[in-house]
């Protein structure tokens, strides 16, 4: 009974998601809304503005370094929480 409910629920979710995929812009097309001027700016001016030829590195450690700082904080807080949880009596 529970398995049947799970399968029906998942079929509903998969149905909704697959019909979303049908409406998505075509895969890999350069005219997709995700390929906008931010991306062009990073690729064209990235080397000149940060000195790094790896654009992903220049995005995560220069343009969006605050994001990476928060990421390091998340890792730090998670391990602090895990350790205090494990050492608790």
């Amino acid at each position: 009974m529970r398995q049947l409910l799970v399968v029906i629920f998942l079929a509903l979710i998969a149905n909704a998601l697959i019909f979303t995929v049908v409406e998505m812009p075509p895969f890999g097309s350069p005219d997709n809304p995700s390929n906008n001027q931010v991306n062009q700016r990073y690729v064209e001016k990235g080397v000149e503005e940060t000195g790094s030829i790896n654009v992903v590195a220049s995005v995560i450690m220069d343009y969006r370094a605050f994001d990476t700082l928060g990421e390091a904080t998340v890792l730090f807080v998670a391990i602090a929480a895990a350790l205090s949880n494990l050492k608790a009596h």
Binding site: S34, V38, N39, Y42, V56, V59, I60, R64, T68, E71
Partner: peptide, 10 residues
Amino acid sequence: NPIPSALILT
């Protein structure tokens, strides 16, 4: 596009 790769690292 480099931005999704950079965001997914987070």
